[in-house]
């Protein structure tokens, strides 16, 4: 099967990319790894067509993983998922982010695809979004007139839709540091251990005071049109001491936070119950932490 016709453009500076993107308008798409762009285009999937493909991978300075004590982890829009997954820095500073990166598709895809691309694709089952939302990450958005920070919690609008304005490009992600008393985890539940889309995905970020939960952000993937915060679950959690009973309650509360659909991968009913199960497990995993070499 052949790809539809389009013009391929490979700007070498960010300014050039911005200019092209703004001039060419809605017929243009930004591409980094392209792994979420090319196969749907071949399938002629709705919304996949474009007249111009602007490949930004030759723009210098956008492939980085950095850490700073104040702002936290910084990941460039050209940084590949495989590099995030294997980064010592990411594994040390926020292993759940490395784990989320590793959950995406296959080794080959992760050697080409980027985390920014993964979120810009805005699939409801996007593997990297829940942990970024839970950790309070921010997308660095470069616009024609101004730059802005768009929190990941406000990034998604619908299936394959984001709140980016026309002409805006995400140049990177900033993930706040995990303090001593904070922890995070992401669990993806799928039938296969690789190459599968999530039935549900749950990310948990917790701020603890001994056994007591001081603050929490739970995010659910694949159970609504966008990744969603589980506010009811968070409410049930905050201010309480962790116990089996509490986790049961929190799991049940999370079920009221999502609106899963039935599709070829799972029924709504099953997804609902798996939200209950994996909310508990994600919280437990966050508390337990990631072992050396686990990811």
């Amino acid at each position: 099967m052949v790809l539809p016709k389009f013009e391929y453009l490979a700007p070498t500076t960010l300014d050039e990319a911005m200019q092209l993107y703004n001039e060419l308008g809605s017929g243009a798409k930004i591409m980094a790894g392209g792994t979420d762009i090319i196969p749907p285009m071949r399938d002629k999937a709705p919304g996949s067509k474009c007249d111009f493909l602007i490949d930004i991978k030759h723009v210098p300075g956008l492939d980085y993983i950095e850490y700073d004590e104040k702002q936290g982890l910084k990941i460039g829009c050209l940084t590949k998922l495989y590099d995030i997954q294997t980064s010592k820095l990411v594994r040390e500073k926020n292993p759940a982010v490395a784990q989320a990166a590793k959950y995406v598709a296959s080794t080959q895809i992760r050697h080409k695809g980027t985390m920014v691309g993964n979120i810009c694709n805005a699939s409801p089952s996007c593997d990297t979004a829940p942990i970024l939302i839970s950790c309070g990450a921010v997308a660095k958005v470069h616009g024609r007139d101004a730059d802005r920070d768009l929190p990941l919690g406000e990034f998604f609008k619908g299936v394959k839709k984001t709140n980016l304005e026309p002409g805006e490009i995400v140049t990177g992600l900033v993930i706040p540091p995990l303090a001593e008393d904070e922890c995070a985890a992401y669990i993806k539940f799928s039938v296969r251990k690789a190459m599968d889309l999530a039935i549900v995905g749950v990310a948990a970020w917790l701020k603890m005071d001994g056994k007591k939960v001081v603050d929490a952000r739970i995010t659910l993937g694949a159970v609504a049109i966008t990744p969603v915060r589980a506010y009811n679950a968070e409410k049930a959690l905050i201010g309480n001491e962790i116990s089996d009973e509490l986790l049961q309650k929190v799991g049940v509360a999370a079920m009221s936070d999502c609106k899963p659909i039935s599709d070829v991968r799972a029924s709504a009913e099953y997804r609902h119950d798996m939200v209950r199960v994996f909310t508990k497990r994600a919280i437990m995993k966050a508390l337990e932490g990631y072992k050396e070499g686990e990811i």
Partner: peptide
Amino acid sequence: DYRMITALD
């Protein structure tokens, strides 16, 4: 969506 077993499974 037709789940064929991977090496990990």
